[in-house]
Design a binder for these strands. Structure first.
Length: 382
DNA sequence: AATTCGGGGTG
DNA sequence: CACCCAGAATT
């Protein structure tokens, strides 16, 4: 009888090797935070899980400086989760316009309604329950639970990934699955006891934002002390500026769109974008033929634009009005602008409306569309 | 596991 | 211009 070699499962992966972790990591972070960390951000220590949640959603992929104004306006306009849940979706989108990642705003609204309808208006304290809510992933759930309720849970955001990559000498791009898994294990392993979770979590964020920064880390500029310097692997091996490894680069696709600016009686025609896709749910200038691959899409000619515009009224003059290029994270958009004068507007379907030029500020407009309008109109009107 | 979602800050 | 930011949802 010949022995049959046991087949190794193809899904089997080597257990990620964890670096040796110091036992005083959290102690260092907490002590540093209490003395040198940020203590006066408007969403800190409010004792209000609603405010913690709102700030965490706004801060996803968005810097503190960009969030401050939006947060203040949101709290004023929607002071409670009940107020937000009861608000029209359009109002929420308008308040979010300009912050980007508009799926966050739709999820925010849905989440508020679920919290009110199914949780009595109180945010859950269990991270696993929080994760089931729209817009809340593993890291955001941990941040909400830790800040609002003192629950011992690990975050892992861009700041923390950078601190870990340097402190523990983690090679590889942190967005890669295996690297990210390793970092989650580290994050769980270095957690302090529950009593210190708030200053610890805040301290990790503050370290990444003010000391262990991407461009000018304090250990190299000497501007301030880093509590991790004596244990930092990147510092020891002189690799601070190398870590974490950057995202592998790809060519940025080029796309083009013909943008119609139809005017009638000091009002402009706007169209609400579909919920899915770019600028989902936001009002925009109509795009004739939407966005096309720039290689085979040339600007639509005046006759095509006139044809498209006739759906919305009687068309007068059609004139080219310049070109704008906007770079997104994942593609570059060339916008060809055409101005259309409408002499007699027709009845409009849902998701279409004429907006007075003086009212444009009250509508949620994506930044490039706002820029196009500013280019075509007097800046004071937008 | 890889892609899709923005706008703005920073070097 | 390149790269990143208190990431999550989708495919």
């Amino acid at each position: 009888m010949t022995a049959i070699p046991r087949r190794t499962r193809r899904t089997e992966r080597p257990t990620p090797v964890l670096p040796t972790l110091p036992d005083d990591f959290a102690v260092r972070v907490i002590a540093w935070q209490q003395r040198y960390g940020r203590h006066h951000l408007p969403w800190q220590n409010t004792g209000d899980a609603y405010r913690t949640w709102l700030s965490e959603i706004m801060l996803q992929q968005t810097q503190v400086s960009a969030v401050l104004g939006y947060y203040a306006r949101f709290i004023e306009r929607f002071p409670t989760v009940q107020a937000l849940a009861a608000a029209p979706a359009d109002d929420v989108m308008a308040a979010w316009a300009g912050l980007g990642y508009y799926t966050r705003a739709r999820n925010l609204h849905r989440c508020a309604q679920i919290v009110v309808a199914e949780h009595g208006g109180v945010f859950p304290r269990d991270p696993d329950v929080l994760t089931t809510l729209p817009g809340i992933g593993r890291s955001t759930a941990a941040a909400i639970a830790a800040f609002s309720y003192g629950v011992r849970a690990a975050i892992l955001d861009g700041n923390v990934k950078r601190v870990f990559a340097r402190a523990f000498g983690i090679d590889g791009f942190p967005g890669d699955k295996p690297v990210e898994e390793t970092m989650w294990r580290i994050a769980e392993a270095v957690l302090p006891p529950a009593g210190g979770i708030q200053p610890y979590t805040q301290g990790l964020m503050d370290l990444g934002a003010t000391v262990c920064t991407r461009g000018r880390p304090a250990c190299l500029t000497g501007e301030r002390a880093c509590p991790l310097e004596s244990l930092c692997e990147a510092r020891r091996t002189d690799r601070v500026m190398e870590l974490p490894l950057p995202r592998p680069r790809k060519a940025v696709p080029e796309r083009a769109a013909t943008v119609m600016m139809a005017l009638h009686d000091h009002a402009v025609l706007l169209h609400r974008r579909p919920q899915r896709g770019i600028w989902g749910g936001l009002w925009s200038l109509p795009l004739v033929g939407d966005m096309d691959d720039a290689l085979n899409a040339h600007p639509k000619d005046a006759a095509t634009v006139r044809d498209a515009a006739q759906t919305y009224g009687t068309v007068g003059a059609v004139e080219p009005a310049g070109e704008l290029t906007h770079t997104f994270t994942h593609f570059r958009l060339h916008m060809h602008l055409l101005r259309v004068d409408m002499t007699e507007p027709a009845a409009l379907e849902d998701d279409w409306r004429w907006v007075s030029l003086t009212q444009l500020g009250t509508v949620g407009l994506p930044a490039p569309v706002k820029l196009a309008l500013e280019t075509l109109l007097q800046p004071s009107l937008v």
